[in-house]
Deep mutational scan, measured.
Amino acid sequence: MTYKAILNGKTLKGETTTEAVDAATAEKVFKQYANDNGVDGEWTYDDATKTFTVTE
Score class of each variant (00 low, 15 high):
Met1Phe: 15
Met1Ile: 14
Met1Tyr: 15
Met1Pro: 07
Met1Thr: 14
Thr2Ser: 07
Tyr3Lys: 03
Tyr3Asp: 03
Tyr3Val: 03
Tyr3Pro: 03
Tyr3Leu: 03
Tyr3Ser: 03
Lys4Ile: 11
Lys4Val: 09
Lys4Leu: 07
Lys4Glu: 03
Lys4Ala: 05
Ala5Gly: 05
Ala5Leu: 15
Ala5Pro: 03
Ala5Thr: 04
Ile6Pro: 02
Ile6Met: 06
Ile6Arg: 05
Ile6Val: 10
Ile6Leu: 06
Leu7Asp: 01
Asn8Thr: 06
Asn8Tyr: 11
Gly9Lys: 04
Gly9Asn: 04
Gly9Pro: 03
Gly9Ile: 07
Lys10Ala: 12
Lys10Tyr: 11
Lys10Met: 11
Lys10His: 12
Lys10Ile: 14
Lys10Thr: 11
Lys10Phe: 12
Lys10Leu: 14
Thr11Ser: 11
Thr11Gln: 10
Thr11His: 13
Thr11Lys: 11
Leu12His: 13
Leu12Lys: 10
Leu12Ile: 13
Leu12Met: 13
Lys13Gly: 05
Lys13Trp: 11
Lys13Pro: 04
Lys13Val: 09
Gly14Ala: 14
Gly14Met: 15
Gly14Trp: 15
Gly14Asp: 10
Gly14Cys: 15
Glu15Ile: 13
Glu15Leu: 11
Thr16Gly: 04
Thr16Pro: 03
Thr16Trp: 15
Thr16Met: 15
Thr16Ile: 15
Thr16Ala: 12
Thr16Lys: 10
Thr17Gly: 04
Thr17Met: 10
Thr17Pro: 02
Thr18Lys: 04
Thr18Met: 09
Thr18Asn: 03
Thr18Phe: 13
Glu19Gln: 14
Glu19His: 13
Glu19Trp: 15
Glu19Ala: 08
Glu19Thr: 14
Glu19Ser: 10
Glu19Arg: 13
Ala20Cys: 08
Ala20Gly: 03
Ala20Asn: 03
Ala20Leu: 01
Ala20Phe: 02
Ala20Glu: 04
Val21Gly: 09
Val21Asp: 11
Val21Met: 13
Val21Ile: 13
Val21Pro: 15
Asp22Phe: 04
Asp22Ser: 07
Asp22Cys: 05
Asp22Gln: 03
Ala23Pro: 10
Ala23Glu: 07
Ala23Arg: 12
Ala23Asn: 06
Ala23Gln: 11
Ala24Phe: 10
Ala24Met: 12
Ala24Val: 10
Ala24Asp: 10
Ala24Pro: 08
Ala24Ser: 11
Ala24Gly: 08
Ala24Asn: 07
Ala24Gln: 12
Ala24His: 09
Thr25Ala: 14
Thr25Glu: 13
Ala26Asp: 00
Ala26Ile: 01
Ala26Val: 01
Ala26Thr: 01
Glu27Thr: 04
Glu27Met: 15
Glu27Tyr: 15
Glu27Trp: 15
Glu27Lys: 11
Lys28Ser: 09
Lys28Gln: 11
Lys28Pro: 02
Lys28Ala: 13
Val29Asp: 04
Val29Arg: 09
Val29Thr: 09
Val29Ala: 08
Val29Phe: 15
Phe30Thr: 00
Phe30Glu: 00
Phe30Gly: 00
Lys31Met: 09
Lys31Arg: 15
Lys31Ser: 04
Lys31Tyr: 06
Lys31Gln: 07
Gln32Glu: 08
Gln32Cys: 06
Tyr33Trp: 15
Tyr33Arg: 04
Tyr33Phe: 11
Tyr33His: 04
Ala34Arg: 02
Ala34Trp: 06
Ala34Asp: 00
Ala34Glu: 00
Ala34Thr: 05
Ala34Gln: 02
Ala34Met: 08
Asn35Ala: 15
Asn35Gln: 15
Asp36Gln: 12
Asp36Thr: 08
Asp36Ser: 10
Asp36Glu: 13
Asn37Ala: 12
Asn37Phe: 14
Asn37Asp: 03
Gly38Asp: 07
Gly38Ala: 06
Gly38Cys: 08
Gly38His: 09
Gly38Tyr: 06
Gly38Gln: 07
Gly38Met: 06
Gly38Pro: 00
Val39Arg: 02
Val39Lys: 02
Val39Pro: 01
Val39Ile: 14
Val39Glu: 02
Val39Leu: 13
Val39Asn: 02
Asp40Ala: 11
Asp40Gln: 14
Asp40Gly: 09
Asp40Thr: 13
Asp40Arg: 13
Asp40Leu: 12
Asp40Pro: 04
Asp40Tyr: 15
Asp40Phe: 15
Gly41Leu: 04
Gly41Trp: 06
Gly41Asp: 02
Gly41His: 02
Gly41Ser: 02
Gly41Tyr: 05
Gly41Arg: 02
Glu42Tyr: 13
Glu42Ala: 10
Glu42His: 12
Glu42Asp: 11
Trp43Val: 03
Trp43Leu: 03
Trp43Gln: 01
Trp43Asp: 01
Thr44Ser: 12
Thr44Lys: 08
Thr44Met: 09
Thr44His: 10
Thr44Asp: 08
Tyr45Cys: 01
Tyr45Phe: 06
Tyr45Ser: 02
Tyr45Glu: 02
Tyr45Gly: 01
Tyr45Leu: 02
Tyr45Asn: 00
Tyr45Met: 00
Tyr45Thr: 00
Asp46Leu: 04
Asp47Cys: 08
Asp47Met: 10
Asp47Lys: 09
Asp47Ile: 09
Asp47Arg: 08
Asp47Tyr: 09
Asp47Phe: 09
Asp47Thr: 09
Ala48Ile: 11
Ala48Leu: 12
Ala48Trp: 07
Ala48Val: 11
Ala48Phe: 10
Ala48Thr: 12
Thr49Tyr: 05
Thr49Met: 06
Thr49Asp: 04
Thr49Cys: 04
Thr49Asn: 08
Thr49Gln: 06
Lys50Trp: 06
Lys50Phe: 09
Lys50Ala: 06
Lys50Tyr: 09
Lys50His: 11
Thr51Gly: 00
Thr51Lys: 02
Thr51Arg: 03
Thr51Phe: 02
Phe52Cys: 00
Phe52Asp: 00
Phe52Leu: 00
Phe52Thr: 00
Thr53Tyr: 13
Thr53Gly: 02
Thr53Met: 09
Thr53Asn: 05
Val54Met: 14
Val54Gly: 02
Val54Ser: 02
Val54Thr: 02
Thr55Gly: 05
Thr55Arg: 06
Thr55Asp: 06
Thr55Cys: 07
Thr55Val: 09
Glu56Ala: 08
Glu56Cys: 07
Glu56Lys: 03
Glu56Gly: 06
Glu56Trp: 13
